[in-house]
Amino acid sequence: MADRSRGGLVGSIGWIATIGLVLIGSGAIALVVGEFAAALSVPEVFLSLVGAFAAIQGLRYVSAARRADRVRTSFGDPERRKTVPAPGAQIDEETASALRGDRGAASHRRRLRERFRELAVAALAARTDRDEAAALDAIESGRWPDDPAAAAFLSNRRFPIAIRARSFFRRQSVHALGIERSIEAIEAVWDDTPRESDRETSSSRLRSQTQPSQEDTRE
């Protein structure tokens, strides 16, 4: 049982514990043999000092314990069915990172802008008479969409001062506003353009009855 490098009592339990045992031993002897206690008895002042020191140490331990973390095994949640993400969860994550305001946020914003531009180009090409190049040009130059916040986000230009001021007072990031308005603009182009075809693809989740579409009639 003993630690071979040291041997004996000290080796097996360590110096501190040995001192503690010596203290206990002398205390026990002092309890029984009055003369021993008298020999050991210390001045009152010294006793007060020891007590105060112990109390202060105790206070330090307690406050340290407040910061100590509890350690335990986590069981996880096996009772729940494994959940799957919603469509677009990746975009949501990217949006959250882009709005976090730390050092990586700018690159997340750039990636998000790319994705939004692609979608906007596709929607514009499908719903307006612009081709893809013209659509991209309109977006990059800030001519589309009309909403200034969305246009600033999609074209990567400075947000107008009015929008900055409003965001400041609403304690909302201008980028959050830009992203929100961008998706609104894209949805507006896709959903509200008065063209019958493909209407059902965009909102059949909400409406069970579908409408005929031009694309399919030729089959």
């Binding site: 503690g20 206990i24 002092a30 009055g34 050991l40 210390v42």
Partner: peptide, 11 residues
Amino acid sequence: STTAVVLLLFG
């Protein structure tokens, strides 16, 4: 024997 008790406790 307060001393004795103190010794015991600290030990």
